[in-house]
């Protein structure tokens, strides 16, 4: 069951580029990355594309397919009609290196700025004990494969390059939430989340949750709880008073 599909692929580099149209064979069961590879093998040998596992686990083949941030390896061709033109472009939020490959180093710079996991001292027997229920919330965020599709779709930096200096993006806001919720961690990152990582820039429009290939509930389980924790610290006089008169344990 093969057919010829029309593909529009963005080709170029930082100096410029455009969408080029190709007709390429598609076989049953294939994904967009398979078709891009066939294109590379048969028509445009110098087409640049980043990929690794082809299983939705390495987060390398992030791109925009028909305008939507997706992993190319997890987008089945069967979701498109045979007469539908499939448009593949690089992620818009990051500087382009060439063709479908972007420079995502912004993300690694932000990652390096986050105060690292700092566990409390070990117990007398040398162990770190915690219950599964305590660490479950943090574990959801550990599913992140760092494909940076959430960063790509977030309008705070997608539409406003200047905000990159003050906003860490959803991937790193959930990293902050993960550490802040961790039962063993002792560092308070709430003020930094607001002041240095731009939590207030997020207007919870949930695009990050919509595009996450791992199905992480970034907004509901990470960013909103983190916003509420910041409210506890900065905008809630009752909670502040409670902590001052020690009726409320700093949990």
């Amino acid at each position: 069951m093969s057919y010829d599909a029309t593909f529009r692929v963005w080709r170029g580099d930082a100096a410029g580029g455009d969408l080029q149209t190709f007709t390429v064979e598609v076989n049953e069961g294939e994904v967009v990355l398979d078709v891009i590879h066939r294109l590379q093998a048969t028509q445009v040998g110098d087409l640049a594309v980043r990929w690794n596992c082809k299983a939705g686990k390495c987060g390398s083949c992030s791109a925009e397919i028909n305008g939507r941030p997706r992993l190319m390896c997890m987008t089945r061709m069967s979701t498109f009609g045979e007469d539908e033109t499939v448009t593949v472009t690089p992620m818009r939020t990051f500087p382009v290196v060439r063709d479908l490959v972007t420079d995502v180093s912004y993300n690694y710079e932000k990652a390096a700025q986050i105060p690292a996991f700092t566990p409390r001292p070990r117990e007398a027997d040398g162990s770190h004990r915690m219950q599964q229920v305590d660490v479950e919330r943090s574990q959801e965020f550990r599913k992140c494969i760092e494909c940076f599709l959430c960063q790509d779709t977030c309008h705070v930096i997608r539409d406003h390059e200047e905000n990159k200096a003050v906003f860490a993006g959803p991937r790193f806001l959930i990293r902050l939430a993960e550490l802040d919720m961790h039962p063993l961690d002792v560092v308070d990152r709430k003020h930094e989340a607001q002041d240095e990582f731009g939590l207030g820039y997020c207007n919870i429009t949930k695009c990050c949750s919509e595009v996450c290939p791992e199905g992480i509930h970034l907004t509901d389980n990470g960013i909103i709880p983190l916003k509420e924790r910041v409210v506890d610290r900065r905008y809630d006089p009752l909670t502040w008073l409670g902590s001052k008169i020690r009726r409320r344990r700093p949990d």
């Binding site: 818009r92 990051f94 420079d103 390096a112 700025q113 690292a116 996991f117 390059e161």
Partner: peptide, 27 residues
């Protein structure tokens, strides 16, 4: 991202806002 100490990772520091950002794909 799990354990890199603050501002000591093997990653180059941020470019700040003084340098012209590299170009995005022209779409």
């Amino acid at each position: 991202t799990a354990t890199a100490p603050r501002r000591t990772g093997a990653v180059t520091p941020g470019r700040g806002t003084t340098e012209t950002p590299p170009r995005r794909a022209a779409i």
